[in-house]
């Protein structure tokens, strides 16, 4: 059962609201991170770059043999291990990571509603805005952990299995290990921000339904729709609005000097989606029948 008691007890424990929010967040995080499916999903994400690395090592053709087809970045990984975390991020962020994030967002509100435990949370003397924000922190944490898992898995696999002196960028320059690691961290943070935007929208759907499956289906359908729309050149004018449109610019992290334009635009776009998602989630939860 959920931690209704924890949530309810928090504001009674003391008049200081800050501590109680902190306690709410802590109990939410404990709740999210103890869920076996969260852990399994994060573990599987960690394994994706490992599997990619092993496959590449086993099947690697000599340098220059980057075959046609397949994700364009994969060819750059051969003999250049530090590209692996970024290639893995760019592959998992398309569907796998949104799946994990929307799963946690589905559990956050719709899941509680399905279990009948949301009613308790809504009746508890915790502001509904605060409730949504605490849930959002939980989703954000999963997003950050998902991106972090792929980045760490990729980094370790890349350095240990594939190796290479520093990171050979797409531009033909070589970044030393420290700078390259910083780039990987930056890429992971950027992906986490994109996933937070997905999570916020998923939270809005989650607030509007009692069925967790609807949340995941809606997010997957939305992503696929956005990808299709993004592929139609007749809809050029629409593309800057699509969340997925800027996701390919993750490859910019492998260029030197780092071109920031598209990455910053991507962040702003993600911020807009996060704001919309969070606002709608709050509005829906506030108007919900207790």
């Amino acid at each position: 059962m959920t931690t209704t008691a924890d949530h309810a007890a928090a504001p009674l424990a003391g008049p200081v609201p800050r501590t109680s929010t902190l306690r709410l967040v802590r109990s939410e995080l404990r709740w999210v991170l103890r869920r076996p499916r969260t852990l399994v999903a994060l573990g599987l994400l960690l394994l994706v770059p490992v599997a990619m690395g092993v496959t590449l090592v086993l099947s690697s053709t000599p340098a220059g043999g980057s075959g046609r087809g397949g994700p364009p970045l994969l060819g750059a990984v051969i003999g250049n291990g530090l590209v692996l975390p970024i290639a893995a991020l760019s592959i998992t962020m398309m569907l796998l990571m949104p799946l994990v994030v929307s799963m946690s967002a589905a559990d956050a509100l719709a899941g509680e509603a399905a279990h009948g435990t949301l009613r308790g949370l809504l009746l508890a003397p915790v502001g509904r805005v605060r409730l949504v924000l605490v849930k959002a922190v939980g989703v954000l944490t999963v997003a950050a952990l998902a991106a972090g898992a792929v980045a760490v898995g990729g980094w370790v696999t890349g350095v240990a299995l594939i190796g290479g002196d520093g990171l050979v960028t797409l531009s033909g320059t070589t970044l030393p290990l420290g700078t390259a690691t910083l780039r990987v961290a930056l890429a992971a943070a950027w992906v986490a921000a994109q996933m937070a935007a997905v999570g916020a929208v998923a939270l809005a759907v989650s607030a509007a339904t009692d069925h967790p499956l609807v949340v995941m289906a809606a997010i997957m359908a939305g992503l696929i729709l956005f990808t299709v729309l993004g592929g139609l050149s007749a809809l050029d004018w629409l593309h800057p609005v699509l969340l997925t449109d800027g996701w390919l610019s993750l490859a910019d992290m492998l260029r030197d000097p780092l071109p920031t334009d598209n990455l910053v635009t991507g962040l702003l776009r993600a911020g807009c989606y996060a704001l919309i998602g969070l606002s709608l989630a709050i509005a829906r939860t506030t108007t919900r029948e207790g």
Partner: peptide
């Protein structure tokens, strides 16, 4: 007040996306 703020947040997000486009 909460609903007003949420509506404002939604509008701000949509306007932001419009500006990007």
């Amino acid at each position: 007040a909460t609903l007003t703020a949420a509506a404002a947040g939604t509008v701000a997000g949509v306007v932001g996306l419009g500006l990007l486009a």
